[in-house]
Amino acid sequence: MWQTVEFGGAHEGRPGVLLADGTEPKPVYFDTGSSGHMHQSSDWWIYDGTLRAPLATHLRASCACGWRGESHYRLDWDQVDRRSPDLFDTTGLEEDWDQHIQDVEARATPLPEDLATLIEQIEQRLGNLAGDAPLAALRAISRLEHIITDAGRRAAFHAEADAGDGSAIGPGLGLPEREARQRLLRYTLHH
């Protein structure tokens, strides 16, 4: 699975599969026999044609947001180590997903350059401080949490007001609309 810090699970990428007819199969269910719960999986290596799973012929990048890569990569099952399928080279798929993430970032509201630089500096400084002076790092983190809570509440309020005409918030945050609304709610619920 591939993720970015900013988008997390909303844009979690993974190898997806296609069947010979070009369709994307549904998850495979496994009966463990011990309860009414059936385990399901959509991991690409499950679709090897065994245990009633359909046989995948191609891989393509996929994202939790619903995006699917245009490039299809032929899947040669003779090249897959069934004991360690995670060692199979999915570099091309990840590169396709990386391009999708770059496209999402390009459509999102840009951060002011000076703020982006400052955030990077704070991240580096806190990382170093955590090892060198952990109590000082914790004091700084406490102050940042307060700043984030206060500014987050105000930003969420103004974003809601700006979107009062029904315009979508998601694209500006680079998120599907549902996740964007949850993010706003998270900030408005902090007291």
Rank of each mutant, 00 (worst) to 15 (best):
A116T: 06
L138F: 02
P171S: 12
D103R: 09
L189V: 09
E145M: 12
I148G: 04
A136I: 10
A130H: 15
L126A: 06
L118N: 00
Y47W: 03
L59Q: 08
R178Q: 11
G152Q: 02
E70Q: 15
M38L: 15
R83N: 05
I46D: 06
R154G: 00
L173G: 06
A161C: 07
G8Y: 01
W2P: 04
H146Q: 10
F88V: 03
P110W: 07
I122F: 08
I101Q: 11
Y47N: 01
H37R: 09
E113R: 14
E95T: 09
E113Y: 02
T57H: 02
Y187R: 13
R181D: 14
A20N: 00
T57W: 01
R68K: 11
E105C: 05
R143L: 13
S84V: 02
V28Y: 03
S42I: 01
T188D: 01
E12A: 15
E6P: 01
E145V: 09
L184R: 08
E94K: 08
D98I: 03
H39C: 00
P171V: 10
R181K: 13
P110G: 11
D76H: 09
I119M: 14
T50D: 15
L59G: 09
A155G: 04
S41T: 15
A137F: 06
E120R: 12
P171M: 09
S62E: 15
E123D: 13
D48C: 13
L175R: 08
E160R: 14
R186W: 11
T117Q: 10
A159F: 05
E24H: 10
A61I: 04
R139N: 13
R183N: 01
L184P: 08
V28W: 14
P112T: 03
P134I: 14
G127H: 11
D114C: 05
L118Y: 00
I122Q: 08
Y47L: 01
A108M: 04
D89L: 06
R107M: 14
A163L: 13
R186E: 03
G152K: 03
L118I: 02
D89V: 02
A151F: 12
Q99N: 03
L115T: 07
L185Y: 06
G174S: 06
D31V: 05
R154T: 13
R14D: 06
W77Y: 08
L175V: 11
L75T: 08
P27Q: 05
R60K: 09
I101P: 02
V80L: 10
A56H: 03
L93I: 14
R107G: 14
T32D: 12
G9D: 12
Q40V: 01
E95P: 00
F30V: 10
R74D: 11
R153E: 03
H158W: 15
D76R: 07
Q124C: 02
F88I: 01
